[in-house]
Structure formats: structure tokens, C-alpha cells
Amino acid sequence: MTSLSKVFDPQTALLAKHAQHVVLVHFPIALFLTGVAFDWAGRWTRRKALAETAYYNLLVAAASTLPVLVTGLLAWQFQLEGQRLKGILLLHLVLGCTSSLLICAVWWLHFRARRRGAAVSGYLWVVEAAGVAVVGLTGHLGGFLAGVNVG
């Protein structure tokens, strides 16, 4: 099989060990950070379009946490045979789950405010800031585990 045909081979893509988690994880990270940035810009400038953009970014970010969690847990079960984690791997798992919860919580708080036709709560920026911090830390650990720091 040539390298080009291997790239487009479904079996190669689907059975690429745990590479899917490493690929998919960029979506919730980028969408959440962008969503929060738009939300804060919307509050600062009081422009509704920015708030709308923030909402849809957060919606897709929350939706994309599911495949990321699933592929991460599958990698743990298949690649490491579900063995008891410790150290960086355990911290990455805990922070990853916490990140997913925070991303979904932020979207849900926006969703609830929209459904009620009310403005989002004033304290929401604290939850968003906590989410950004935890997502950043989880991503840092993930990058460290994946070896992106190797020169």
C-alpha cells in the first residue's frame, strides 16, 4: 500500500490506535476558548451577534466533548488494558473529565438563560474562567503525554 492510499484507507484511519483522541481533542478546546472569548467580547461591547456566536461555539464545543471522552476512555481500555492509572495519566483523566463537565456546564447555563429569555448570570464569567484554566491545564498535560515538547 502506498503512503497516499494508506492515508485514505478507512482501516488505517479507524484503527490508528488512540490517534483519534489526539485529533478530536482540538475541537472542544478551540471551540470552547473561542466561545468564551466571543462571550466576553459580547458582554464588553453589548453586541448581540457576538453573544450568538459565543452560544453556537459553546454548543458545538459541548457536543464535541463526547467523542473526545469516548476515544480517550477507549484508548485507556484498549491500549493500556484499563490498568490502574497513576501520575500524569491519572491527572490527565481527572482533568479531562472535569474539563468536559465545565464545558457542558457553561453551555447549559447559556442555554438556560436563552430559554428563559434572560441575560446570562453575572457570575458566569467565573465558571468560564475556571473552564479556560482547567481546559488549558488538561491540554498542557495531554500535549506533554503526546510528546509535543520533544525537540
Binding site: K17, Q79, L80, L89, L145, A146
Partner: peptide, 11 residues
């Protein structure tokens, strides 16, 4: 024999 191996965290 020849035993090839890898790291399952970093294939």
C-alpha cells in the same frame, strides 16, 4: 527469534 515491540502510549 526477533521480537519487535512498541510503547502503547506512543505507538
Amino acid at each position: 527469534g526477533t521480537y519487535s515491540y512498541f510503547c502503547s502510549v506512543h505507538p
